[in-house]
Amino acid sequence: MSTSDHRLLDRLGGDYVDRETIEGLLFAAPYLIVFVVFLAVPLVYGLYMSFFEWNFLNPDQSEFVGLENYRTIIADGRFHTALLQTFYFVFLTVPAMTVLGVVMALGVNRGIKGTRFLQFAYFVPYVTTVSIVGLLWVQMYGANGVFTQYTAWLFGRVLSDTSLAMPGLALTTVWWQVGFFFAILLAARQSVPEHLYEAAKLDGAGTIRMTWDITIPQMKNSIIFCVIAGTILQFQVFGQPFVMTDGGPAGSTETAVFYLYELGFRTFDLGYGAAVGYVIMVILIAISLVNYYVIEETVN
């Protein structure tokens, strides 16, 4: 905004309240525009597209098919497999990252030396991009990689075995993403008031008791946040299968978003893809709600 805006405001604004409304809208406008154009419109537009057999080259000639795309989803075995494999991936990564994140946070917080080095080691993978991570781990899982060297029984076939490929991607993901869990859980650990431990010490609790009876319950909210945010993020896994396995072998690492990408940008089945996107979104919202209530119930 500049002085010319103010002159404009003076002309427009009669009393003070009107002027504040105009100012308010002007300040909000830049974000609201990108929000509407690149978030809200696509959201509605996606719903619209999902009722069409969408013609990518000539959208005008798209054919309205009603709920046909959604009916297809119900019968689409490949999508169901992708969903199950995504759940499997989440199941392999999120609990492991939560436990590991808690262990790391508690370790770093115990007043040991070299915490800056440890924070670096735990967190630096998180600021590396997925393609670099993926290529690096392809090398590590490869015939002469460090991983294969010490797991000879896997014969260097982690990524080419249908039952090992997904755990392989999960391991890579834990390495890559646990820094996020670590950072949040470390903050949670650091905000537990010290006097609770003093009281517990006088009450006769040792380190392990204090961890179970004070630390973990006090970190509860952050752990719930990590599990929910982690689930939502990992459910949208894409880069790892794209870079490391291309969904294979035999489709065993094809995940929900990977399938969405296939539909949208390899087979250009955009109408169906939009419907699949919507279903994934509904599933994710449902997961986060269920997650929240289940955890909340069991913890209390």
């Binding site: 959201l43 537009y45 996606g46 597209m49 949208q236 969405l260 539909l263 949208g264 996107g277 994710l284």
Partner: peptide
């Protein structure tokens, strides 16, 4: 979720 919007 950020990624489900990609097609529209």
């Amino acid at each position: 979720p950020a990624f489900v919007n990609i097609i529209p």
